[in-house]
């Protein structure tokens, strides 16, 4: 799931200041699950913006709408009429959703209401943690299902670094050392011998270093 967090109200007010009729557009997928940009959050952000507008005399007129998925044209269509009526759209989707809306409505200012932060999971109630860097070449099979690229602060392919303290990462002491987890997991699944293999440096071409990525599936193209 894509995890995102809300921008602060003063940031949003600054972004929206030149506009009057503003549509706060929510997304019913990942950002709903991570409680940052779904219907409920759209309502909260809209309320806060209306209050800020009245306190600061900004004269915002805020409308609200949440669609099922902002990164998909089929769902964007359902919001087309409302979007056309607005002067600007504040999208509370991930960065992909914001750009999908902006591409579909080339003459409409579209702003991001959230900071898209990472691909992660809900670890416990109210806590989301990063699990995948979308690097393009998955190595999870070699590390017992624990990603050293995402979860090791130093992205070490041949760890551990030796800096961990009491199984905590030395860079982020609030997070566990990924290599401690990898060792324990490989031991549990009786694959410790994997650690004797030296992993060559990773080819980052499949990641953002190779430029913006696209996936083309000829079998699905028309």
């Amino acid at each position: 799931m894509i995890v995102a967090e809300r921008k602060t109200i003063p940031e949003l007010v600054d972004i929206l200041r030149p506009h009057k009729n503003i549509l706060v557009l929510g997304c019913g997928t990942c950002v709903t699950v991570c409680l940052s940009g779904g219907e409920r959050e759209v309502s909260i952000i809209s309320s806060a913006l209306r209050i800020a507008s009245r306190v600061q005399g900004l004269n915002f007129k805020i409308d609200e709408l949440t669609i099922e998925r902002q990164c998909d044209n089929i769902f964007i269509e359902q919001a087309a009429e409302t979007i056309q009526k607005a002067d600007a759209v504040l999208s509370t989707a991930c960065g992909a959703g914001v750009q999908a809306i902006a591409e579909r409505f080339p003459e409409k200012p579209v702003y991001a209401g959230l900071n898209t932060t990472f691909l992660g999971i809900l670890e416990e109630r109210g806590v989301w943690t990063e699990k995948c860097a979308a690097c393009g070449t998955c190595v999870l099979h070699k590390y017992g299902g624990i990603c050293p690229i995402t979860r090791c602060a130093k992205r070490m392919m041949n760890g551990p670094c030796g800096g961990s303290r009491e199984d905590r990462c030395e860079v982020r002491p609030d997070r566990p050392c990924a290599w401690q987890l990898i060792y324990k997991r490989l031991k549990d699944i009786k694959q410790l011998e994997r650690l004797t293999e030296i992993e060559p440096p990773k080819n980052w071409n499949s990641s953002l270093s190779g430029g913006p990525r696209a996936l083309i599936r000829e079998d699905h193209k028309i």
Binding site: I9, A48, I51, V55
Partner: peptide, 16 residues
């Protein structure tokens, strides 16, 4: 309690 604290933060951001 958590929601009230979050709402207080939001109100402060909004200028109340």
């Amino acid at each position: 309690k958590g929601r009230v604290n979050t709402a207080r933060q939001l109100l402060e951001e909004a200028g109340l």
